[in-house]
């Protein structure tokens, strides 16, 4: 396998491209490693610990004082507190949208008003999460701070 690294201009977005004949387990493993390098958090499922790439997280929710990390289909439990995630992932595209939920802004597909004075946020995996009115201004600020 040939390995190429080229320098691109500051204006371009950095990328990693893999040229492969087949998207097999080896390639999946490489992708996983790259994603992990991009940042990861600890998650637990059936007493086993997993490294979850941050870019795979859809949202993190507190339910009855337990913290759950939701991916596209899977769900892991975390031993960290929600405010800790809010602090550590705040500059990684995550924002609090209700008292018990932090969402990855890269996973949002649409935002619509709900009848109960709140907003419904549709995610890329088809799930709906609720944005409380109280957190709308925070979301607005977060979306505009990168401009």
């Amino acid at each position: 396998m040939e390995l190429k690294v080229k320098t691109i201009s500051e204006k371009e977005t950095e990328y990693i491209e893999i040229g492969c004949h087949k998207y097999d387990e080896n390639i999946k493993e490489i992708v996983k490693i790259i994603k992990l390098h991009h940042g990861s958090v600890d998650g637990y499922k059936e007493e086993e610990q997993y490294q979850i790439p941050i870019s795979d997280i859809y949202y993190i929710e507190a339910v009855d004082e337990r913290i759950f990390i939701y991916l596209k289909k899977e769900c892991y439990e975390s031993r960290r507190r929600l405010y800790e995630f809010e602090d550590s992932l705040g500059d990684r595209g995550f924002v609090r949208i209700s008292k018990s939920l932090i969402v990855n802004m890269m996973k949002i597909v649409s935002i619509k008003p709900a009848l109960n004075g709140r907003f419904v946020c549709k995610l890329k995996n088809g799930e709906d999460v609720i944005i409380s009115r109280k957190y709308v201004s925070g979301l607005k600020e977060k979306l505009q701070e990168k401009r």
């Binding site: 977005t13 950095e14 990328y15 990693i16 491209e17 893999i18 992708v31 790259i34 994603k35 991009h38 870019s55 595209g93 802004m105 890269m106 949002i108 979306l143 990168k146 401009r147």
Partner: peptide
């Protein structure tokens, strides 16, 4: 605008 600016660089490109 935010999503296009940040981009899911690694995932998107790959």
């Amino acid at each position: 605008v935010y999503q296009s600016q940040i981009g899911e660089t690694v995932e998107k490109e790959l």
